[in-house]
Design a protein around this nucleic acid. Structure first.
Length: 552
RNA sequence: GGGGGCAUCGCCAAGUCGGUAAGGCAACGGAUUUUGAUUCCGUGAUGCGUAGGUUCGAAUCCUGCUGCCCCUGCCA
């Protein structure tokens, strides 16, 4: 395996090992998603970070669902999450649910109550909110803060037994209403919720809050490094407080370390916004190939290897940053360059007639999959008088430095012959409908012909023996420069361009999910939703970079 | 009028004890090329938010200032 690049988290882990805080063989991380939605590229960063610790230190990494809010969670998401992690190529050591610890969490709450560190508050939500204070003013203590341990115990048990309704009472930690850290102002740690939980069913009607549950989950699993995103930095004192006040964990407990989450230019990662797109029918689901959800990327044809290399390359740090989408695209192309088969496909067909190639004649050329590799395998590609070429490979009046076809110019048809443009046909609207040319039999590909050279090489497809393909060209979902308050106004309505083209016959029978490089057009992946039987639909995963700029 | 973070090339990002600014993406040259792809060479900070200070020497230490992000859910 390739050397894993360093980052500040690895440095901290190594310091902890050096200082004896944790031994090398007990290093353990966890990826703790809440099963309340589909994962996207941002989650992939967190997954890669946690599992990279496993790989680098030969450690353990658990997949643990942070399922403490039954109103938002569902098992359709637990399954989707497992699929996505497995797709990325990671194997968790244990698959766990924080809801499996509800019993222990309840016992620990009892312990805190007995220690006088937690109390049942009868105030309603609005009152609690109003007495929390502000960033600049301290909060005020609840009038119920000092009730007896016995009464707290009795009330909390009653909460658990369903004697009250949601909102009636909560369990709060007794920390400090004057703390400058809002999280420490007697945070609520248990609330009453009447909802069926995806894992525990109707066993519970009280549910722990994240700030209380998370440190306990980590500690129970003996996680050493609890890696999370920056916004939890303010929660770290509370994370530590909970563990330091519980007998089971006060001696030794996990360490929380925060890192900056991933932002990518030109993309939408907000769950709320993606949902809007799905519901408005702008995209065809959570796995629409234009989305950076893991399902969307998979359907688009992006490989797990590309995602992982990208994540490793961008590093891990604490500064808020936005990575240029081009950097991600670079790794997509890099991975596809050698892994995908190269064939010819025409996106926007234009007829090419070879006037001196006998009508009715046809030959099958042996074309190497890789023109740049002499050892490349070949496939048979039919060639005849009537072909299709790319519309953009012909110009009636050539711009400067245009190497493609225009009247009088000669180019190479990849894997075939040199061809010289002799004319073209326009319809009544001035649209070019056909290009005419002659070919030179001496220039056959592979013959070693070297009498003259040609600047351009273009791809082509036989006009009779081919396979029709529907090509989905995918562009940014966000309009450039759009910053209307109304999200939908910022959406690029041309993010999906559908083209009906032709691919060489070897593409026939392509299975959903299979990839090609359609030479000069980019990397394509057969869509898993629309490809069916003879109907081939391809998503363009990425185009090819081009150094050619028409205008000067 | 609080607290917690972050500031190194257009975008990311190394820089662990102060010793004289890695790497990637992008961009721009040029070479090779039956993909204007790939590959290959070459080009970037006298400078590390800013102003001072300590030091033979500071991105790294000290002080002041500035900018940006996060925090007042019975969400995670």
């Amino acid at each position: 395996m390739a050397q894993i690049a360093g980052n500040f988290i690895f440095n901290e882990i190594e310091k902890d090992i050096a200082s004896g805080k944790y031994t090398a063989d007990e290093i353990k991380t966890r990826f703790p998603p809440e099963p309340n939605g589909y994962m996207h590229i941002g989650h992939a960063k967190a997954i890669c970070i946690n599992f990279s610790v496993k790989e680098k230190y030969n450690a353990k990494t658990n997949l643990r669902y942070d399922d403490t809010n039954p109103e938002k969670e569902s098992s359709v998401f637990t399954e989707a999450i497992q699929r996505d992690i497995a797709w990325l190529g990671f194997k968790w050591d244990e698959l766990l649910y924080s809801s499996d610890y509800f019993g222990r969490m309840y016992e620990y709450a009892l312990e805190l109550i007995k220690k006088g560190l937690a109390f049942v508050d009868d105030q309603d939500q609005d009152t609690i909110k109003a007495t929390r204070g502000t960033l600049n003013e301290p909060g005020v203590e609840s009038p119920f803060r000092n009730r007896s341990i016995e009464e707290n115990l009795e009330l909390f048990v009653a909460m658990k037994e369903g004697k009250y309704s949601p909102g009636d009472r909560v369990l709060r930690l007794k920390i400090d209403m004057k703390s400058p850290n809002m999280n420490m102002r007697d945070p609520v740690i248990y609330r009453i919720v009447n909802a069926t939980h995806h894992n525990t069913g109707d066993d519970w009607c009280i549910y722990p809050m994240y700030d209380y549950a998370h440190p306990i989950e980590d500690a129970i699993e003996k996680i050493t490094h609890s890696l999370c995103s920056l916004e939890f930095e303010d929660h770290r004192p509370l994370y530590n407080w909970v563990l330091e006040n519980l007998d089971d964990f006060k001696e030794k407990h996990p360490r929380q370390i925060e890192f900056a989450r991933l932002n990518l230019t030109r993309t939408i990662t907000s769950k709320r916004y993606i949902k809007q797109l799905v519901e408005a029918g702008i995209v065809d689901g959570w796995d629409d190939p234009r989305l950076v959800t893991l399902g969307g990327l998979r359907r688009r044809g992006v490989t797990p290897a590309a995602i992982r290399k990208f994540m490793e390359n961008i590093g891990v740090a604490k500064s808020n940053s936005t990575i240029d989408m081009q950097q991600f695209e670079y790794f997509i192309r890099e991975d596809l360059l050698l892994s995908s088969v190269r064939v010819m496909g025409v996106v926007e067909p234009l007829k090419l007639t070879i006037e001196n190639y006998p009508e009715g004649q046809k030959e099958y050329l042996d074309v190497p999959y890789r023109m740049d590799d002499e050892a490349s395998e070949t496939r048979k590609v039919p060639f005849s008088r009537n072909l299709y070429i790319e519309r953009s490979d012909f110009e009636e009046i050539a711009p400067k430095k245009y190497y493609r076809l225009y009247p009088g110019n000669e180019v190479r048809l990849m894997g075939a012959y040199f061809v010289k443009c002799t004319g073209f046909v326009k319809d009544e609207n001035g649209v070019i409908t056909e290009v005419k040319c002659t070919y030179d039999p001496l220039t056959k590909s592979g013959s070693g012909f070297s009498e003259r050279k040609v600047k351009g090489t273009i791809h082509w497809v036989d006009a009779n023996e081919n396979v029709p393909v529907e090509l989905h060209l995918l562009y940014d979902l966000l309009k450039e420069g759009g910053n209307s308050k109304n999200f939908l106004d910022n959406i690029n309505r041309d993010s999906l361009i559908v083209k009906n083209g032709y691919a060489e016959i070897s593409v026939k029978g392509t299975a959903p999910g299979e990839r090609y490089q359609f030479v000069r057009n980019g990397y394509f992946c057969a869509d898993t939703k629309y490809t069916e039987g003879d109907k081939l639909v391809f998503n363009r995963t990425a185009d090819l970079k081009s150094g050619w700029k028409p205008e000067k």
